[in-house]
Nucleic acid binder design. Structure first.
Lengths: 332, 332
DNA sequence: ATGAAAGCGCTAACAT
DNA sequence: ATGTTAGCGCTTTCAT
C-alpha cells in the first residue's frame, strides 16, 4: 500500500506537507495542494489508521456496548446509532457483552487497548472498574434506553410510559391486568413501577400474583411468562407485556390455550418494533422513537467528545401510545 | 495508561522481555515471567492495539460487510459470526454498506485504512476495485448467505431449498402458486429458479404473472408484493415468500382482504426466523441452519488467514423444511 | 509556507 | 534467556 512517504517523494515535498494536505490544514500553497491531491487520488492512498491513532493518541472511533443477547429493538437501535455516529465522522466498534463479569472485564480491556473517543451504552454493566477507568481517562460515556452508574442518558420515561399503557387498559374497563416484565435492565423496574402507579391511581390493590419477571425480553421468554401466569390463575382480562416480543410470545400461548386476543384478553406491548404492525392481531403498544433516541445519543456523545459545554445529564424523548387491534373494551 | 516500558522498568528488565511474556513466547525464565505477570496484573496493563497493529502489520480483526438495510435474519447471523470469530481470537469490525457506489467505495477505503486480516461478506458488492484490492493484498475473503465475484462461500443451496418449498405446496395439491421474491442478492435469483424448477417438474406452465419481485426482504415490502399480486389476480391458492418477513407482511394483507391462511391460501416462508414460530398462524418455512452457517464462515476464514491448505471453495449447509400451520391441503 | 526530526507503543531481528 | 536497536506510518513541534 502507498504511504505518505511515497506521495511525498512523488510530489517532491516532505511528508509533513502531504500530511497537512490530507488533513485539510491551512497555509498550503494551492498549486502544491492540487498536485498532492492528484497524487493521492492516483495512488488510491488512504492513511493508515493504526499509525494515525498512534500519533494522535486517539482513534476517532466510538464503542457501543450492547448485551450479547439483544432483542430486535436493540438491534434496530444500534444500527441507527452507527449511522449517526458515522455522519459525525466516527467509526464504530461494538462491544458485545454477556451477563457475566469475565465478559465485562473483557469489555474494559478492549476499552484500554483501543484508544476509543467515547462510548455509548445500550447495556448496564455491573463492573465498577469500567466506570472508574472511564472517569480516570475522562472518557465520555452516554447511556441510552437503559442507564447505569448515573451516566448521562437519552431515553423515554419508562415509568410514565408504562403507566400510560396500563391507563389505556384501565380506560377500556379492564381491572384484572397482568404484567410480564423482563429483568436485567433498570427500565424493567421502571416499567413495573409505572404499572403499579397506574393501578394505584385507579384504586386497584397491588397484587403480585399478576406480575411475572422473565430473564429476557424475547418472544421465547414471553411464552414462559404467560404460561406461568396461566398456571397461577385464569382470572384476568388484560396483559401488559414489557416488550413487543414478549407480547407476541404471550399471545401465542393465549391462543394455544383457547383464549382470543382481544376478545378474551387485551394485550399491550412496548417498543413498537416493526413487526408489531404486521402481527395478527396488530399490536397495541408504546412507541419508542428509536430514530430520535439514536440521533440524540450520537449527538450528545459527539458534543461531549468535542468538549461541549452545558450538557444535559438526561434527555427524555417523548413516547407515544399506539392503539391498534390487540386491545379492546371489556365485555360485561 | 501503563505501557510496556513502565512494566519493564518496574521489573528491571527490557521491554522485549515483557513483550515476550505478554505474548506467551517461550524461553523465559519462569521466575521472571511470574514477576512480570504480577506487575502486568497490578498495573492493569493492556497492550495498545494501534501500536501492536503497526509493529505487526496486521490487526487481528476481521471485517464483516453487511447491507445497511439488513433484515432480522441477517442481523441474527452477524452476531453469531461475531461470536465465533471472537472464539478464534479475532476482533470484529462492521462495514455497513448501502446500495450505492459511494458507500461501496467508503467500504474499500476502510479496508485500506485498517489492516484487516480478512473479511466476511453478507453482502454482494458491485465495486470491482474492492475485489481487486483484496486480491492484490491476498486478503482472505469469504462470502456467506450470498455470493459475489466467485468468492469462497458458505450457504445453503437456495435453488434446491426453494424447489423443496414449492414441492411441499405441490404435494398438498396446490397448483396456483404465487411467489414474492426480494432483489439485490443472488440468492433471490436462485430461489426464483428453484420455484420454476419445481413447477416445471410438476408439469405446470411458467407464468410470470404469479411472480413479483420487491426491493427488500422485509415485512413492509412483503405487503407491497402481496398487494401487487392481488391486483393482478385472486386466482391462486398458495404463496411462496422468499423470506419469513415477506411472508408475514403478505399474510397481513391477505387477512385484511378477507383471505384466511391457511384455509384459503397456504403460505410458506424462508429462513425460519425466531418469530415465525410465534406468529399466528405459525409459519411453515425453510430452515437455514444459521448457527452452523456462522460457525463455518468464521472457521473457513480463520483457516484462510492462517494459511490453511485444501480449502473448499464452496460449503453447502443442509437446509430443512419445517412444516407448521400456514400450509395445508387444498380443499377441492 | 515548508522541512527536519522526534515520538506515539509495540515487535522482532540480531547480538550476546 | 535476555537486551539492543531499528522500524511500523503517521502527526506535530520547532525551525526557517
Amino acid at each position: 500500500m502507498a504511504k505518505l512517504e511515497d506521495i511525498a517523494r512523488q510530489a517532491g515535498v516532505s511528508t509533513s506537507t502531504v500530511s497537512r494536505v490530507v488533513n485539510g490544514k491551512k497555509y498550503i500553497n494551492s498549486e502544491k495542494r492540487a498536485e498532492i491531491l492528484k497524487l493521492v487520488e492516483e495512488n488510491g492512498y488512504i492513511p493508515n489508521k493504526a499509525a494515525r491513532n498512534m500519533a494522535m493518541q486517539r482513534s476517532f472511533t466510538v464503542g457501543i456496548v450492547i448485551p450479547d443477547a439483544f432483542n430486535i429493538f436493540q438491534r434496530q437501535l444500534f444500527s441507527i446509532i452507527e449511522r449517526y455516529l458515522n455522519s459525525f465522522g466516527y467509526h464504530t466498534t461494538f462491544f458485545f457483552v454477556k451477563f457475566d463479569s469475565s465478559s465485562e472485564k473483557e469489555c474494559l480491556n478492549r476499552l484500554k487497548a483501543e484508544q476509543i473517543d467515547g462510548v455509548i451504552m445500550l447495556h448496564e454493566l455491573k463492573y465498577p472498574a469500567f466506570y472508574d477507568y472511564a472517569a480516570k481517562m475522562s472518557l465520555p460515556v452516554v447511556s441510552t434506553l437503559c442507564n447505569s452508574d448515573n451516566l448521562p442518558t437519552i431515553k423515554i420515561n419508562d415509568r410514565l410510559a408504562a403507566a400510560e399503557a396500563v391507563n389505556h387498559l384501565l380506560s377500556l374497563g379492564h381491572k384484572k391486568i397482568n404484567l410480564i416484565c423482563g429483568s436485567g435492565f433498570s427500565f424493567g423496574d421502571e416499567r413495573i413501577k409505572g404499572y403499579y402507579d397506574a393501578l394505584a391511581a385507579a384504586g386497584i390493590d397491588r397484587d403480585e400474583n399478576r406480575v411475572v419477571c422473565v430473564r429476557q425480553y424475547s418472544s421465547e421468554f414471553g411464552t414462559y411468562g404467560m404460561k406461568e401466569l396461566l398456571l397461577r390463575s385464569r382470572d384476568f382480562t388484560a396483559l401488559f407485556a414489557a416488550s413487543d416480543e414478549i407480547a407476541l410470545g404471550a399471545i401465542r400461548v393465549l391462543k394455544d390455550e383457547g383464549l382470543r386476543v382481544p376478545e378474551d384478553v387485551s394485550v399491550i406491548g412496548f417498543d413498537n418494533i416493526e413487526s408489531s404492525n404486521y402481527y395478527i392481531p396488530r399490536l397495541t403498544t408504546i412507541h419508542q422513537p428509536i430514530e430520535e433516541i439514536g440521533e440524540q445519543a450520537a449527538r450528545s456523545l459527539h458534543r461531549r467528545i468535542t468538549g461541549g459545554i452545558n450538557l444535559d445529564s438526561e434527555i427524555i424523548i417523548p413516547h407515544k401510545l399506539i392503539i391498534r387491534e390487540s386491545t379492546r373494551s371489556i365485555v360485561h
